[in-house]
């Protein structure tokens, strides 16, 4: 008789075990938790919200991958406004960044009228070590310090650079719930008390 080595020996061991498994009704295979979800568990349990911020889970507390964050700046051009950002976190998180859309209509150099947000860490500077906390801090910063050098809404950026006080006045006017023409379209702006 030959002494078969290595994989071949394992092969027969495996056959035996398969037969055993069949005899004793095989154990149900455990499902694997999606890695993105595990990382979200960590991000969410360690998330600290500053005063004037709110987080909501529209699909219930078990769906951590979809949520809305509301930022309420207490100073700057956008003070006393309430801006809701919708987060959609892909299963491949944190390899890929969450998708963030601003749901509140706002006249802002870095947010366009469709709600796209130009924040470097959401796209070109995203790194897996960043967290939901980092993105929320980035959004908060964006609402405190709009940046005209990197415009997504060119009209807003130009106005802010040309005449900051006029721009501020215009933004404050939109907070009264007015309509305003931006580009080719008129937009309804929400009213903030």
């Amino acid at each position: 008789m030959y002494s078969l080595g290595g994989m071949i020996k394992l092969f027969s061991l495996k056959q035996e075990k398969a037969a055993e498994d069949q005899a004793s009704a095989s154990t149900p295979s455990t499902k694997k938790v999606a890695p993105g979800l595990i990382r979200m568990q960590k991000d969410m349990s360690e998330l600290k919200l500053e005063k004037g911020m709110k987080i909501e889970f529209p699909n219930g507390k078990d769906d951590l991958m979809n949520f809305k964050v509301t930022v309420m700046p207490d100073e700057g051009i956008y003070r006393s406004g309430k801006f809701t950002f919708d987060f959609k976190v892909p299963a491949s998180y944190p390899h890929d960044a969450p998708k963030v859309i601003c749901e509140t209509t706002v006249f802002h150099p870095n947010i366009d009228m469709d709600g796209h947000v130009c924040l470097n860490i959401l796209r070109e500077d995203w790194k897996p070590v960043l967290t939901i906390q980092s993105i929320i801090m980035g959004l908060q910063f964006l609402m405190l310090e709009p940046n005209a050098d990197d415009p997504l809404n060119k009209e807003a950026a130009r106005m802010m650079e040309d005449n900051r006080s006029k721009f501020t006045q215009l933004v404050r006017d939109t907070f009264k719930g007015r309509q305003m023409q931006v580009g080719a379209k008129r937009y309804d702006f929400p009213r903030f008390e």
């Binding site: 890929d96 870095n110 995203w126 790194k127 990197d150 415009p151 997504l152």
Partner: peptide, 12 residues
Amino acid sequence: PQQTVPLCTIAE
């Protein structure tokens, strides 16, 4: 991570 272009570059 995949190379991405800044949104503002694409837009403006």
